[in-house]
Design a binder for these strands. Structure first.
Length: 259
DNA sequence: ATGACTCCCAGTGGGAGA
């Protein structure tokens, strides 16, 4: 089973790239489930037909201008939940569904802007709510994958300039403590289960030719539950779509499970 | 360096992203 996450930075702009990428992946093994972040489209304008024509069922949850998430799957998703139950949120950030027996959670974590900002405080509250809800989800679903744009670097290996960016947004001790708290629920960073190239990143700024110079961050993650850890066969960042014309600033992350 | 680039909604500029 192959699962993936991709922050597309506007699905209306990136739809052709998403469909091309799914087609490319199918030459090896098709992606069974794909979660998207920053679709930036309201549900009435979501390109459902084009995605279904490509062989995927899709659940989505969006809003105007900002945020927006989607869950694409070949088999279809059941028990779909939008956002974090019990956490009042104006922003469309989470979509969850059960696909082929796996609880798949696709999430667009808050950016946080700056450590002293209101947005950072919201990020901390959101992370608290996510953790509390995940605790109950994990009790109900042994096979669970949480993936998406976490907007958190796990450690300095995930940062192109760990000295210059120390303590800045995505790299603060508070954010990393929240990430660790997710692991402590019984989740595992699938990417670090395997040997990876040095300086592996999933996001590069559009400015200053950051991709060409590989000045990036690894902030898109796939977390697998303990029950899935042994079944996890690979986890890779696919930089190819970042080389497209008009790319998203994020690259997709793919995990392969022996299911 | 309060920048750079891209997207959105707007409407010939500004917010947000990371």
């Amino acid at each position: 089973m192959k699962l993936a996450t991709w922050n597309v930075n506007s699905l209306s702009v990136r739809l052709p790239q998403v469909l091309d990428w799914l087609q490319q992946q199918a030459n090896e093994h098709p992606i069974d489930a794909l979660v998207l972040q920053e679709t930036k489209t309201t549900d009435d304008k979501f390109p459902r037909e084009a995605i279904e024509a490509a062989g995927y069922q899709v659940d989505f949850f969006g809003q105007k201008t900002y945020n927006g998430v989607a869950l694409l799957s070949r088999a279809g998703a059941t028990d779909v939940v939008r956002n974090i139950p019990g956490f009042e949120d104006e922003m469309a950030r989470v979509i969850t569904g059960t696909v082929q027996g796996v609880r798949v959670i696709g999430a667009y974590f808050p950016n946080g802007q700056a450590p002293d900002s209101d947005k950072f405080a919201y990020k901390m509250k959101w992370l608290d709510a996510l953790r509390a809800w995940l605790h109950t989800e994990l009790q109900q679903h042994q096979q669970l994958v949480l993936m998406g744009d976490f907007n958190i670097t796990v450690d300095d290996r995930d940062v192109w300039d760990p000295v210059g960016l120390a303590g800045t947004i995505h790299c603060t001790a508070e954010e990393r403590a929240h990430f660790q708290a997710l692991l402590d629920l019984g989740l595992c960073d699938a990417f670090r289960l395997f040997a990876q190239p040095d300086k592996s990143y999933s996001w590069w700024d559009y400015r200053e030719m950051a991709f060409r110079r590989n000045r990036g961050l690894r902030i898109d993650h796939v977390l697998v539950s303990q029950a899935l850890k042994e079944a996890t066969q690979a986890c890779v960042i696919d930089k190819a779509p970042r080389k497209n014309e008009r790319p998203s600033d994020h690259a997709p992350v793919i995990v392969t499970l022996a299911l």
